[in-house]
């Protein structure tokens, strides 16, 4: 079969290329400019989010990792940068971590320049002109709360009724207002922040998707053909002339396709700092702002692309920059 043939051929070839490049420590910045990123990590290397809190999942998975690169240095590793290792399997019907708790609802609010970044409408670009987002969607998975007393608390991503979401992921699609609510079932307590993966955990990030149901089916618009895996984040926009003038790398990109080559390019681990108080009853709603300025910065800041298995295209390069830069940026902030 052509699929299998292509997948095997490209998959093996790219994997070997990645392995060779990594083993040789070769680096290739994809452009001039900022070179503060670009630490070299081993295949599947795991760099945690700021502070690098590790933590064991009940199933043995780990998000981030202990002894990881802190945000102060701003240096995320290369290929597996900031990756979330994830659970052992990708199952649609998730066994819940707990059956009781309080639903913590985080309303996803994209902002640009401190102002709401409105879907489908022209937004003022910081570089002049306007940006009209016409497609913006991403996955969250592997959510953990950072306990005020220390330690991390893995939590399920749940529906409004409190049951685990299919595949244990949240799919944000800015076109669908109902997807703006990320809900987790949290034990009561006080927390200092949230760790999560911006994308899919390893087992869910495969290059075959035909048997998957939403939100991992092809109608998610987040699938790539084999041998590539899922898109973790997809963004497309219409730019007016003023904004387009800065499209060479300093301003907002027209498109960002951040994705993961299965078993090689992991979903970046994100830390969101902020105090959270979860009572024993009722529900808690907070705003989780998506800082588009930081998204654009991450997509524009060059990184080491040596040996990285990427599809061609500016949008894919922008995505890989974002993926590698994400752990050192504040892509998300907690609001009231």
């Amino acid at each position: 079969m052509a699929y299998r043939h292509l997948r095997d051929l490209l998959g093996l070839g790219l994997f070997v290329a990645v392995a060779l490049a990594t083993a040789c420590g070769g680096k290739h910045l994809d452009g001039g400019g900022a070179g503060s990123q670009g630490g070299v990590a081993g295949l599947g290397g795991i760099a945690g989010a700021a502070g690098g809190a590790g933590g064991g999942m009940p199933d043995g998975g780990a998000l981030g990792g202990s002894g990881v690169t802190g945000s102060g240095g701003g240096a995320a590793g290369a290929l597996g940068a900031g990756g979330a290792a994830g659970a052992a399997a990708c199952v649609e019907t998730v066994t819940p971590l707990r059956t009781s708790g309080t639903i913590l609802e985080l309303t996803i609010d994209p902002v640009l320049g401190g102002q709401p970044f409105v879907y489908g409408e022209p937004n003022l670009s910081p570089t002049g002109g306007t940006i009209t987002p016409i497609n913006f969607r991403f996955y969250f998975s592997e959510v953990r709360l950072l306990a005020a007393g220390g330690g991390v608390v893995p939590v399920d991503i749940v529906t409004a009724a409190g049951s685990p979401q299919p595949y244990g992921v949240h799919f944000f699609n800015y076109e669908d207002a109902s997807s703006r609510a990320l809900r987790v079932l949290a034990p009561p307590g006080t927390y200092t922040g949230i760790d999560l993966a911006l994308g899919l955990s390893g087992p869910c990030n495969t290059s075959t998707f035909e048997a998957r149901n939403p939100p991992l089916s092809s109608t998610s618009q987040m699938t790539w053909p084999p041998p590539f895996g899922y898109l973790f984040l997809r963004y497309e926009a219409l730019l007016t002339t003023g904004a387009q003038a800065a499209d060479a790398g300093a301003g907002p990109p027209r498109a960002i396709h951040m994705g993961g080559f299965p078993k090689v390019l992991a979903a970046p681990a994100i830390r969101v700092d902020g105090s959270l108080s979860v009572p024993a009853g009722g529900a808690v709603t907070r705003s989780l702002q998506v800082v588009m300025d930081q998204i654009f910065l991450g997509a524009n800041t060059p990184v080491d692309l040596t040996g990285v298995p990427l599809a061609p295209g500016e949008e894919v390069t922008a995505g890989e920059r974002l993926r590698q830069n994400a752990p050192g940026l504040q892509l998300f902030t907690l609001g009231p």
Binding site: N135, F209, S218, T219, S220, P225, A311
Partner: peptide, 21 residues
């Protein structure tokens, strides 16, 4: 069709050949 050469897959992914978007 399914590669970046044709770019068709962005809207017509393998299998269903529509992303319903």
């Amino acid at each position: 069709f399914l590669g970046e050469k044709g770019n068709c897959f962005h809207c017509h992914p393998a299998g269903m050949l529509t992303n319903e978007g």
